[in-house]
Design a protein around this nucleic acid. Structure first.
Lengths: 233, 233
DNA sequence: AAAATACGGATTGTCGACAATTCTATGCAC
DNA sequence: GTGCATAGAATTGTCGACAATCCGTATTTT
């Protein structure tokens, strides 16, 4: 809403969605704050402080922290409190690898369920993405990129897998910018996305899976290099 | 311990492992009880009752339920309590599909990291599995089957992915028996496992991934049929 | 001076009690 | 007998208080 895009990260389904007003939406607000980067990684999350900040009781905050811990956004140590979890370079890579595996599968399924209407929507996003690249707007591009992938998840109609990727994404969101700012990436990325759309439109599962794999493998590769560079400097 | 195998499902890593005595190990014990099937699916989980049963306070039980909810083993509705989550046939299939995707990836990674010692261990498990089949012991076979796959996860050295599959497995554990009891399955399954070992031993990522995919795709297929049969009867 | 110890503040963990909500069963009208 | 309203029981949600634990600092010991 205010800061970044609204649909960038969907809240992982289940778990008492309809929550009272002040009470348990503490979870949602705290989550948003962390994902948006309003807390530093490794920053301590003191229950009493959070309770005051969010106008909730300590009980609610406590429940939220337990959830976020299980979700991997927060790290809780017995008697020592909670911190915003810092995902290491190593782990960020692992997460990305899992994402490759899952999105491959999702692409495969999407290919068997895609409708002409879906195809039109994907093509439109692709156009907008091109426009952003031409306009030199990496943030807008990144946002559309997210939309693109999320749309494929939706087409695939695999709730379990979609929830998992969404979850992983919110954990590694802090690393995203690294792969975006790579020089020469946008053009290539655009072509890769185009191929994905074509493969899906052709309703060809193997080709769709391969295209997605190709695309995301390159993202992983880029991330690897970025990390290596970041590490040796 | 009493009912089924002890190592069948590893507890998903993170989250305050060192917990006080009676206090928060409530989570572990409740989890085990659910996974072992000591609670019926959809059975209500009343906090006060659980607290008495496990000799813990309601607070601890509450935290445990929140965690289990996030984990997908329990379903919590505001003001209406928690139940053991019932995974639908549909969802069981989805879960299995995700498992295919993840284990494929894990096999690929394992192929690049496997040591001669690992190979020996895998071969040995394979032998024992053969023995179980010959002895007509499906439960023992199933247990070894789990060990086999878990060993590959360990070899792959991908903590994130491993945690996810382990988690998924505990959710769908109730469906396992359906695929096991399929006639003619054991022999074929055995051959598939053998091919996986060979591919890994050859340190061939593509072949390993393909072998795993082949194997698990068949499991999915079997599950599909079992569900269909179960549904139309 | 370095190490070990003891203290004090801050924070988490747990309990009991009460409010809020949902569920169940009874009674009443028709 | 069926449907609806209502009272009571059962259960969850939240708060405040206190105990347990940890961390940093000052003090003692060697």
């Amino acid at each position: 809403m205010a800061t970044t895009s609204p649909a960038v990260t969907e809240v992982p389904a289940r778990a008492a969605e309809r929550e009272a007003r002040g009470g348990a939406s503490a979870y949602l607000r705290l989550r948003e704050a962390i994902v948006d980067g309003r807390f530093q990684p490794n920053e301590r999350l003191v229950e009493a402080d959070l309770a005051r900040t969010f106008g909730a009781g300590r009980t609610a905050i406590r429940a939220a922290l337990v959830r976020l811990d299980q979700e991997g956004l927060v790290e809780r140590q017995p008697n020592r409190g909670a911190r915003v979890r810092l995902v290491s370079d190593r782990e960020a890579l692992e997460i990305e690898e899992v994402r490759v595996a899952l999105e491959q599968m999702l692409a495969r399924h999407a290919a068997t369920r895609i409708t002409p209407r879906d195809t039109r929507n994907l093509r439109q996003i692709l156009e907008e993405m091109t426009a952003r690249v031409d306009a030199g707007d990496p943030l807008g591009y990144s946002e559309l990129n997210s939309r693109f992938h999320e749309m494929i998840w939706a087409i695939a109609g695999q709730g379990v897998a979609s929830t998992l990727v969404a979850n992983l994404k919110s954990q590694s969101i802090r690393f995203q910018y690294r792969t975006i700012l790579q020089p020469g990436r946008p053009d290539r990325s655009l072509r890769e996305h185009a191929e994905i759309v074509e493969a899906l439109a052709a309703r060809d599962p193997d080709r769709s899976e391969a295209a997605m794999r190709e695309h995301l493998s390159r993202v992983v590769e880029t991330l690897k290099q970025a990390i290596a560079r970041h590490h040796t400097r």
